[in-house]
């Protein structure tokens, strides 16, 4: 029996070792780059939160309709039963409204963190605003932990008007930064692409072709360089939100962002033409 035990144990250990070996082998074959892993992790979390957000928004829309109907019935009939129904529907829609806001802010935070092209101090400040807004929404949600009456609901409603201003400011701060960051990233990549193309293909195809290319490269370079001052202008507006707040800034810079977007589109067209010369 001793011999059997030994043989059995050695067989088990061998199988365990081989199973572990195959797992290690599989792990070594996977991507080990932490940057790639972080991006994939963000993308996955963003996808999940987006689905959750859409679901909650749908549910909120349905409940809002029910709340409006119940409220209208209460004001028409004035009975205790209609008041009870209206109070219930109002509380339900308020709870879901807070949930929608919380999910939206969490989603915005992840998108902000995964967005390149933004200066780190600005990104950190915007993230802190979002975290503070999330915390305030969560505190607001605590007020619905018990059943409320008409008076309490109206008090909460007044308090929400203050909360929503803060939430909007945090959201538009992040949205503005992300809009700028997206275009900034494309601008930076376009400059690098232009430089790489110039190194590789500027002198190909003979003297006539290379002269034509040089003019084209210079024109593309001028266009891309001209965008730097436009980005600086937007950055300055963002750094000084003034009384209109970030919501105002976000609306105010739309024209400049459209102009930058249009110029970048033209620059990419130029680069496409350069590849065909």
């Amino acid at each position: 029996m001793t011999f059997f035990k030994k043989t059995f144990l050695s067989l088990i250990f061998t199988l365990l070792f081989l199973a572990n070996f195959s797992v290690i082998y599989a792990q070594e074959n996977e991507a080990t780059d932490p940057v790639v892993y972080d991006k994939e992790s963000f993308s996955r979390d963003i996808r999940q939160l987006k689905l959750q957000y859409r679901g909650e928004l749908e549910e909120y829309r349905s409940l809002e309709n029910l709340y409006l109907i119940a409220k209208s019935q209460y004001h028409k009939l004035g009975t205790l039963a209609s008041l009870e129904d209206a109070v219930q529907k109002t509380q339900e829609v308020m709870i879901l409204r807070d949930r929608v806001l919380r999910t939206y802010l969490r989603l915005l935070r992840l998108k902000l963190l995964s967005q390149p092209g933004i200066e780190l101090p600005e990104k950190t400040a915007a993230e802190q605003s979002l975290l503070s807004a999330i915390k305030n929404v969560e505190q607001h949600q605590q007020e619905f932990s018990k059943s409320l009456d008409k008076v309490q609901i109206n008090e909460i409603s007044e308090g929400f008007e203050v909360l929503i201003d803060q939430v909007e400011e945090a959201a538009y701060q992040a949205l503005t930064l992300m809009s700028i960051g997206e275009l900034q990233t494309i601008h930076d990549k376009a400059i690098v692409l232009r430089a790489d193309m110039e190194v590789e293909i500027a002198s190909a195809g003979g003297a006539l072709k290379s002269t034509e290319r040089k003019r084209s490269f210079d024109e593309t370079n001028r266009l891309l360089e001209s965008l730097k001052s436009k980005f600086d202008l937007i950055e300055e507006k963002y750094a000084n939100p003034s009384s209109s707040g970030y919501k105002g800034i976000h609306q105010a810079i739309q024209k400049q962002l459209n102009s930058i977007h249009s110029s970048l589109s033209q620059a990419l067209t130029f680069l496409g033409e350069l590849l065909k010369i």
Binding site: L57, Y60, E64, Y67, K71, Y74, A86, V87, T90, V93, M94, R97, V100, L101, Y104, L107, L108, K111, K150, I153, N154, S157, F160, E161, I164, E168, A171, Y172, L175, S179, E182, L183, I186, Q254, L257, N258, H261
Partner: peptide
């Protein structure tokens, strides 16, 4: 990155829910 197409616009919620 088109500025006219916001990927995540602010949610269309009613900020004046009251009885």
């Amino acid at each position: 990155a088109d500025p006219n197409q916001e990927d995540l616009p602010f949610p269309p919620i009613n900020s004046e829910i009251t009885l």
